[in-house]
Design a protein around this nucleic acid. Structure first.
Length: 226
DNA sequence: GGCCAGGACACCA
DNA sequence: TGGTGTCATGGC
């Protein structure tokens, strides 16, 4: 097993960029919408989340304040198709209420908050785990972090790197420093990895998706590394 | 019908 | 500390 270094990260980014280019992530019209989507997509396909986002939009509930003011039962009905809807309704109500009360919107929070303050603000809020927090910091608050999701762990493992899932902070710091803390590059690298995972490996004769899906027996290591 | 999806948390040994 | 169960819908 190899130790992941900055060069490895940049090579990975370059290989993926040749395939996907700039994906302009995250698909949302506001920072509040990023936060809402980040919770809805927990262990759920984005397709299902899109249905919920559309329902919330129609009902004028795509902001933290509108969600915090709505009833949890009504919210649960609107986000039903994302699964775990009771749990997610509770989580959304809690975090949106805190954002609304303290800042109004995440856009307003962005202007006044540092990385340390943001982490402090979200720490301890039920339902905001490591990955969800990273998504919020990177895509909603424009802060330089990397989203270490299960696709990334799996991919690193299959590329032969000592991923050390027990020390995610270290691996994340390698990604961030390798890309010079560039928020746009950090966003796009994660987006490209997710898109790689979405590709259907079994429908393609040569595919890199195998790096990311357990149900594929193809070891595509030599394809992804330039 | 089974598996998986852009997780997180409580509980237990 | 690490493993397991729970939350749950929808697409393939």
């Amino acid at each position: 097993m190899k130790e992941l270094g900055a060069t490895d990260v940049r090579q990975l980014e370059a290989a993926l960029f040749r395939k996907y280019g700039d994906l302009k992530w995250w698909p949302a019209e506001s920072a509040d919408e990023v936060l809402i989507g980040a919770i809805l997509t927990q262990n759920t396909s984005w397709r299902n989340v899109e249905t919920c986002i559309a329902s919330l939009r129609i009902n004028g509930m795509l902001s933290c304040c509108s969600i915090s003011e709505s009833g949890r039962e009504k919210l649960a009905v609107l986000i039903r198709s994302s699964g775990f809807y009771n749990q997610k309704a509770e989580r959304l109500t809690t975090v949106c209420g805190k954002v609304c009360e303290d800042y109004g919107t995440l856009e307003l929070m962005t202007r006044r908050i540092t990385m340390e303050k943001a982490r402090e603000f979200f720490s301890g809020i039920k339902g905001i785990g490591r990955e969800t927090l990273s998504s919020i910091l990177l895509y909603a608050l424009h802060l330089p972090v990397f989203v270490m999701d299960k696709y990334t762990w799996r991919m690193l493992g299959r590329l032969g790197f000592e991923t050390g899932e027990k020390r995610p902070d270290h691996v994340e710091s390698v990604f961030v420093s390798a890309l010079g803390g560039d928020v746009n590059r950090l966003r796009n690298l994660h987006a490209m990895i997710v898109n790689l995972a979405k590709d259907n490996c079994k429908s393609k004769p040569i595919c890199e998706t195998c790096l990311l899906r357990d149900n594929c027996d193809y070891a595509g290591r030599e394809i992804i590394v330039p």
